[in-house]
Write a protein that binds this DNA or RNA. Structure first.
Lengths: 192, 192
DNA sequence: CCTATCGGAATGAACGTTCATTCTGTAATA
DNA sequence: TATTACAGAATGAACGTTCATTCCGATAGG
C-alpha cells in the first residue's frame, strides 16, 4: 500500500467508526484493524488521537462547504439564497450520514465547543462567512427579524440539524420535496 | 448521614459531574468522592452506572414536565398554548443549565436514542403528550403547516435547544423578552 | 444502666478489562 | 548495507465493579 493510501485508509476507518460508535467506541486498535494497518502505524501519520479527530473534522467541513456553496450567488434575493444554503446543508447531511454523525459527535464534545468559540471570536476562519453576510444584510434591510446573529443562526439551522438527525435515525424519511418544505419553514421562522 | 440523604448526595454529584464533564468524564470514583461516600456505596443504591444514568434522566424529565405544564390549559388558543410550552421549556433550560447539559449528554448517547425510539413507537409514556395533542389538533384545524409530526417537533423545538445551548455556553445572553421573541419566531416557522 | 451480640450499611483496596501510546524486532527500500 | 516504515506486542493509566472487612445503631441479657 502506498504511503498516501495508508493515510487515507486510516482517515476513512476512523471516520466510519467514530460516526457509528462515537469517540469512545472507536479505539485506536479498532481503527487500525479496519484500516488494515498496525496500531502503531497510525502514530506515524497522526501525533495522537486528538490530532486525528480534529483533522477529520476539518476535512469534512471543507468538503461540505464546497458542495453547499456550489452555485451560490450573492445576486439572488435573500429567500433564494437562504433556501440554497439550507437545502444544500440538509441534503448534504442526508446524503452523507456518516459525516453528519461525525459532526454531531464532534460538536457535542469539548473539541467542538472550542472550535465554535474560536469561530465566534473570529480567531478561526469560518466556512460560514456566507451565512453571516446573508444574515447581517438581511437584518439591515429589514427582510429578517432583528435578532442577535447567534440566535438567527440557531433559528435557521437548529431545526435542520434536528430534522437530519431524525431522518438518519429512521424516525422520519425526507424526500426532496420535504427537504425544501422544511427549509421553507425555517425561512418563515427568521423572515420578518 | 441518613439513608435518603446519601442517595440524594449520590444523585446530585452524578448529575453535576455528568453535566459538566459528560458520561466519560464522570467516573464512579469521582462521583463517590463528590457525594462524600465510598465508591462501593453507590452500588448499594444503584445496580450499575447505566441504571444511575437512566434514573437521573427520569428525575429531570419529571421535574421539567411538571414545571412546564403548570398553568397549561387546553382552552387557550393554539398560539398561546405553544408559547406557554415553548417559553416554559426555554426558561427551564436556562434556569437549570445543569439539567440541560445532562439532557444533552443523554440524548446524544445510545441511552437517549433508545428512549426516543421507545417514545415514538409508543412503548413509553412520553411527558410530551401535550405537545403531540397540540400539534395534531393544530394540523387538523389547518392552523399549523402540514408536516409529519416528527418534523413539526423538530421545527418547533430544535431552535429552542440550540438557543439554550448557546446561552449556556455564553455565546449569547437571553433575557425574558428575548426568550419570548425566540419562541414567537419558532411559532412563525410552524404556523400556516 | 451497662455491656455483649448482632445485622445490615458503608467502605476502599483490589481485580479484570480496556484504552492510548510506546517499544522492538522485522521487512522493505535505497 | 543503511535507513526508513511497519506491525503488533508491551506498557501503564484509568475505568467499572466486586468483596472481605469495618462501622454503627439497635436489641438483649445481666
Amino acid at each position: 500500500m502506498a504511503r498516501n493510501d495508508k493515510r487515507e485508509e486510516i482517515v476513512r476507518a476512523a471516520r466510519e467508526l467514530i460516526a457509528e460508535n462515537g469517540f469512545h467506541g472507536a479505539p485506536m486498535a479498532m481503527i487500525a484493524e479496519r484500516a488494515g494497518v498496525g496500531a502503531g502505524t497510525i502514530y506515524r501519520y497522526f501525533e495522537n488521537k486528538d490530532v486525528l479527530i480534529n483533522e477529520l473534522y476539518g476535512g469534512i467541513e471543507d468538503r461540505m462547504n464546497q458542495i453547499i456553496m456550489d452555485g451560490y450567488s450573492t445576486e439572488t434575493p435573500f429567500r433564494g439564497r437562504f433556501l440554497h444554503i439550507g437545502t444544500g446543508l440538509l441534503r448534504y447531511f442526508i446524503e452523507h450520514p456518516l459525516d453528519f454523525r461525525y459532526l454531531e459527535q464532534f460538536h457535542n464534545s469539548p473539541y467542538g465547543v472550542a472550535v465554535r468559540r474560536d469561530k465566534l471570536l473570529g480567531n478561526r476562519e469560518g466556512g460560514c462567512n456566507a451565512f453571516k453576510e446573508l444574515f447581517e444584510q438581511g437584518m439591515a434591510q429589514q427582510v429578517l427579524k432583528n435578532f442577535p446573529l447567534v440566535i438567527l443562526f440557531d433559528l435557521a439551522f437548529g431545526p435542520l440539524v434536528t430534522v437530519a438527525r431524525d431522518h438518519i435515525l429512521g424516525f422520519v424519511t425526507l424526500d426532496a420535496a420535504m427537504i425544501v418544505r422544511t427549509v421553507e419553514a425555517c425561512w418563515d421562522g427568521i423572515k420578518r
